[in-house]
């Protein structure tokens, strides 16, 4: 039978904690079991991350470099999508609000939707598409071309150097990108409001700030850390444990996006439960 896990990590990276063969060999090769083996090895990968992240030496330079690549390079994409979402949401919401004579609520309503939900989720999905797949493909191709092995021979812990830095960067950069994207989204909304009306900048933003509460901002901000962490971790996991073959690179990139996007929704669902629990 196929041994899913050990096939996925043929490189035996240093200290790699793989599933004992006797354990995985006795499990029938069904989709269901594959799923649980995947969850199992992702859990081990995550635990390893927490083990290594606090252990010196810290790869500070690489963390800075990755933060620049992951954060700064995503700005244009995030800005464009943020702007369009703000604009479109405003235009789409206007008729409904107009029906109830509540057009003056437009800025407040759009702001709450963007900041609470749409901004974080859309930005994270874009981020998963760009950064998650990027990390997956990069690490997978490093795996195929033995660059990860070469690092190990050069006395570098590749998990620390490659995985820990990327996961941390993603965790720290996504919240900043979401704040940026939300801000641009509100600008888009301002443009949208003014397409058919005339609202001054001051009025627009004072309406928004009056309607926003701490409860809107804080949970939305906190959950983006989890989104970033999940995206970085899944991208790294898929890349680091990819099959050693060129087709492994494409697969890693692809499944990183799919899996990371799914995780964003799942975490979002959990987050909404948690926040409503505390708010009641």
């Amino acid at each position: 039978m196929e041994n899913v896990i050990s096939q996925q990590s043929p490189n035996e990276h240093q200290e790699a904690e793989t599933i004992p063969e006797s354990f995985s060999e006795n499990i029938p090769d069904s989709l269901f079991n594959k799923f649980f083996l995947e969850v199992y090895s992702l859990t081990i990968f995550t635990l390893r991350f927490f083990k290594e992240v606090f252990k010196p030496p810290y790869e500070f330079n690489e963390l800075m470099k990755q933060s620049f690549l992951i954060g700064y390079r995503s700005l244009p994409l995030v800005a464009i999508t943020g702007f369009i979402i703000g604009l479109v949401l405003t235009i789409q919401s206007r008729p409904t609000l107009a029906k109830f004579g509540a057009e003056s609520w437009l800025p407040a309503m759009v702001a709450v939707s963007i900041i609470r939900e749409i901004g974080p989720v859309i930005t994270s999905l874009i981020f998963a598409g760009k950064v998650g797949s990027g990390i997956g493909a990069e690490l997978a191709s490093m795996n195929v071309t033995e660059q990860i092995d070469a690092m190990q021979v050069s006395c570098t812990n590749p998990f620390k150097y490659l995985v820990v830095t990327r996961v941390l960067s993603a965790t720290l950069m996504l919240p900043l990108l979401v704040i940026f994207s939300d801000t641009i989204g509100l600008l888009g909304s301002f443009v949208g409001v003014n397409l058919k009306g005339n609202v001054s900048t001051y009025l627009f933003f004072s309406q928004i700030f009056q309607s926003l509460e701490f409860n809107d901002l804080f949970p939305a901000f906190i959950k983006t850390f989890f989104f970033g962490f999940a995206i970085g971790l899944i991208g790294s996991y898929k890349g680091y444990n990819s099959n050693t073959g060129t087709e492994g690179v494409g697969k890693a990139a692809n499944s990183a996006v799919v899996f990371a996007s799914l995780m964003v929704f799942i975490i979002d669902m959990i987050a909404v439960q948690v926040t409503s629990f505390f708010q009641n």
Partner: peptide, 21 residues
Amino acid sequence: ELIEIRKKIGFLFQGGALYDS
């Protein structure tokens, strides 16, 4: 200890294993 040993060993990989980045 493995790291100490590795410091004394040079390894030329079959494909070069150059760091693309």
